[in-house]
Nucleic acid binder design. Structure first.
Lengths: 120, 120
DNA sequence: TTAATCATTCACCCTGACGTTAACGAGTCT
DNA sequence: AGACTCGTTAACGTCAGGGTGAATGATTAA
């Protein structure tokens, strides 16, 4: 865990409910920082830190409002989402690749029948 | 956020580098718990807790080895990955949807305040 | 039965993440 | 200039998450 990968940082950023909510909200339109803080009933400093995390992973970008330079407008950036989807599809190939899935399964069970699952 | 959504729990589970590494490793084939602990140079209790988290989010499933009932074999489950991909594609529709993309671009180039003030 | 093995849960510590208030820099307005 | 606003960073407290070692339960081997 010396240097967390970009994917790790993306996932960590999206794991927080507040930050995921911010992403969902930015899907509609860009928002000023203050508006986001108010929308999530949170102090401006707290939201500022969340936005910094999202910014550092490249999930959002910051712009200065054209009409009022005090206002920072945040909007989504596509790259990290695309990277995450790339990894996801790689993982999901585990199932779409029938041969590989069967081989892996057979290797472990060696002809015995996999019956009833167990729950936690 | 008293009750984190399934998506939040999935993302939280995948945010940890160890757990994401476990997922990556399980892509090759199912693994016994002890093998995973050794592979990540980690005590069995630590790995056991990671596996519990993954299990509780449905990302992996536990089975008793057919040859030795002491061994718990872990393998991937598809559902949470599909759900995550669903959300991801929803977010990415922000860009693939031409109208939405245009709207977002227009907002960004004009500023977000509809209060009459024009940029230049 | 007794000893050894696999994996879990239990008890504890400790770092890191998130939230708050206060102070600061930057920009707007009169 | 001075007062006000937006958003940030700074300092601090709190709490969950993740690590360890010891104890427990289940299974296998002698």
């Amino acid at each position: 865990m010396a240097t967390p990968s970009a994917l790790d940082r993306t996932l960590a950023a999206l794991a927080d409910p507040t930050r995921r909510g911010v992403v969902d909200r930015l899907r509609q339109r860009p928002h000023p920082a203050g508006e986001l803080a108010a929308a999530f009933d949170m102090s401006p400093p707290a939201m500022s830190r969340h936005l910094r995390v999202l910014r550092q992973t490249g999930l959002v970008e910051e712009r200065i409002d054209a009409d009022d330079a005090r206002v920072r407008v945040y909007s989504l950036r596509p790259e990290p989402f695309a990277a995450l989807r790339g990894w996801l599809e790689e993982v999901e190939s585990f199932w779409s690749d029938q041969l590989g899935a069967f081989k892996a399964h057979a290797e472990r069970t060696r002809g015995t029948k996999p019956s009833g699952g167990r729950k936690s």
